[in-house]
Simulated assay, not measured.
Amino acid sequence: MRFKAGIQNINTFNKFTASLASLSPVAWVRLDETEVRFTVIPEQGTQVWSVLSIETIFEQYTIQSAADNVVNLEVPLPSLQRALKSALNATSANIRLTKKDGLPILCLTIVSTSNAPNQFSAFGSTASRDDGPSYDDSQISNVTDGLSRHRETIITQDIPVRVMSMANVQGIHEPRCREPDVYIVLPPLLQLKSISDRFTRLAMTSRASASGGGGTASSSSSGPKLEMSANMHGCLRLGIRTDAMNISSVWTKLSNPDLDPAVVEGGDEGVLQHPSTRMKELGDAEGRSEEGWATVRIDGRDWGKVMSVGRLAGRVIACFCHEHALILYVYLSNSDEDRDVSVLTYYVSSYSP
Rank of each mutant, 00 (worst) to 15 (best):
T200W: 07
V264K: 09
W28K: 03
D258P: 06
V111Y: 08
T46C: 14
V111H: 10
G287N: 10
C235G: 01
S221C: 02
F38G: 05
K99G: 09
S335I: 02
N11D: 05
L344G: 03
R176G: 01
C321Y: 02
I247W: 06
K100L: 09
T91M: 08
D340A: 05
R339V: 12
V48L: 15
Q273Y: 06
R151P: 00
I154L: 07
N115K: 10
D145R: 15
R297I: 04
Y135N: 10
V111K: 13
S333A: 15
L77E: 05
V309M: 10
R278L: 14
L190V: 11
R278F: 11
V75L: 07
R2K: 14
D340P: 00
P224W: 02
R241W: 08
E74D: 08
P133Y: 05
W28A: 00
E35Y: 04
T242S: 14
A93V: 13
N14M: 09
C321L: 11
G215I: 01
S128C: 01
L238N: 07
L73N: 07
G223V: 09
I105T: 10
P175V: 08
C177A: 15
A18S: 15
S22N: 09
D130Y: 05
P133C: 12
D68M: 06
S276Q: 10
S218K: 10
I140F: 08
S24R: 03
G239F: 07
M1W: 04
R178D: 11
A294N: 07
S335A: 05
